[in-house]
Structure formats: C-alpha cells, structure tokens
Amino acid sequence: MSIASLTSRVGAASAAPTGGDPSAKPRRPGALHKKDRVIGLLAVLPALLLVVTFSAYPIAFAFFISFTRTNGLTFEWRWFENYIAMATDPIVQQVFLNNLKFLIAIPLVIFIAVVVSILLFERVRGWKFFRVIFFLPNVLSVAVIGIMFRNAFGYYGGVNQALGLFGIEPVEFFTDGNLAIAIIILALVWSGFGYMSLLLFAGLTAINPAVFEAAAIDGAGWWKRLWYITLPNIRRVLGFVFIINVIYTFTGLFGFVFVMTAGGPGYDTTTIDYLVYLRAFSSSNLGSGAALAVMLFLFIGILTLLQNKVFKLQEED
C-alpha cells in the first residue's frame, strides 16, 4: 500500500511537468485541471469580492459623488460645478500650499536616513539592536506620536519646561501656522527616518562588496567611496524612497494634523486629506469633498505610475 502510493507519487511528480505517461494521464489531468480552476476561483473570490466592494466600488462612487450636489441622501447631478468651485476656492489653494510646505520634511528624512543607513552599514557593535530601535516609531500609532509631540511642545510640555530652565518664557508653538507646521515636520522626521534608513540599508547590502574592496585597494578613501560608489549604487532606492514620501506627505498626514492642530490656526496647518475629512463631516455638500478626493486620487495615481517606472528601470539594470 505504502509502496504503491510512493511509486505513484514519484511517477506523478516526474510525469506531471512533461505531461508523460500516456496510459492513465491524458484524460485525468484535464478533469483535474477543470476542477482546480473552479476551486482556485472559489478560493480567490471572497477576498476579491470584498476588495471590489469596499475599495474599487467606492472609488467609482467617489467619482460619481464629485459630479453631484449631495448631502449623502439625495444626489443632484451638477457636472463640473464642484471642480470649478474647487479651482477658485482660496482655502483649497492655501491647503495645497500647506502640503507643499510639508514637503520640506522629505529632504530632512532622506538626509538623516542616508546618514543612518551608511553608519549602520559599518556594522559596528550592536547595529542589529540599533536597527530595532530606529524601527520603533513605526509600530506606534500616529495618534500616539502626534499627541506626544503636541504635549512636548505644548504650553506645559517638556520643551517649554526646558526653556524655562534657561529663563526663557514659554513659547506658544501652535498659535503660529509656520511654527506649527515645523513641529509636525519634526514629528514626521522623527517617526519616518527609521523605516527609510532600513529601506536604504537593504539597498546598501545589495551592493557587491567586491566593488568596495577594489576601490579600497585602489586607495579611495572613505568619503570618496561614499560619493562615487555607495550613493550612486543606491540612487534607485533613493528615488523609490523619495516618491513614497511624496505620496505619504499628500495622503498620510491626517492623523498628525487631527491630533496636533486640528488644522489650525485657521486653515494654516490643514492638509488636503484633512480638508477632505472636514468637507465630509462639516459641510452640507459632500460633492466638494469628493471632488477634492478624486483630484488626490488622480495625483497619487500618477505618482504611483512614476514609481512603477522607476521600479521597472531597476529591474532592467
């Protein structure tokens, strides 16, 4: 029994790829194949249906809503009214400008991430431990990180207490728009550089060590190797990191803004994704929020395509 099943197992395994043994095979694989297709389809279907219902369909629905005037119950088709209103809306312009200000975080994050990844790559004692520490902010909620920074820079917070030790009056960090943006950027950098440095570190480990050795033998110093070998070799990872950061800056700030400034003072720290939220839950016309969301979606789509192109380049090289 066991021997029979063993031989049939071996036979099947070796025969399957070539299609082999004509005596029993030709009919059965066909039947099996058909059955497998049905089973495979049934296994994929629940996940696919859920994703289509709760991700793909809402996107289409967002397009529809953006062409209407609606409170969520009744829909009035208004063509491009919301888009035209958006184009001339000073708040939208200001908010877009705010998002551009937040982009300052990106060179900061990337600079620190590059430095940290290169230092990690030296693999000094305890580098694995450092790696986990640097990753630490990534397991925390933006609500936790945001409130932590809001607290630290609040009137009674650690920073003002520290300034007080030097006899400096407490600073109201969150009453000035630009100062508030600076604090949020600080939170972004603090929480973001670790993950980016680990991405870059993975890029560094992919460089052939022989290249470094050859350069070292040729007498290239540490800085020369950094500039001519290390950085050029991770430029694609750098591009990838840059684009995911841009996407994050336009879509991922809701949590920080919500807990740190609620978009204020005025609209000074409101970002596009936060404005979508505001329009969704405090305005009588959901259409205007949806139009904003659609623009954001198209913008992110373009960036993602760009990123895929970068990624393709990487595969070709």
Binding site: D36, R37, G40, L48, S55, P58, F61, I65, A293, F297
Partner: peptide
C-alpha cells in the same frame, strides 16, 4: 492553482494596495 483570470485578480489586488483613506472616506461612509 490555475485560477482563471489570475492575472487580473492579481493586478486588482496590487493596484488597490495603496489607495489612501482620504479618497475613500466619503463614498464609504
């Protein structure tokens, strides 16, 4: 498994991987 249309299913999953929440909140709500 030989899933029919596996290519499209995979493409659907991959392309829906990075849809930002802000885009979905109004229609989903």
């Amino acid at each position: 498994y030989p899933v029919p249309g596996a290519k499209y299913a995979t493409a659907a999953f991959v392309s829906l991987m990075l849809i930002p929440g802000a885009v979905l909140i109004i229609p989903t709500y």
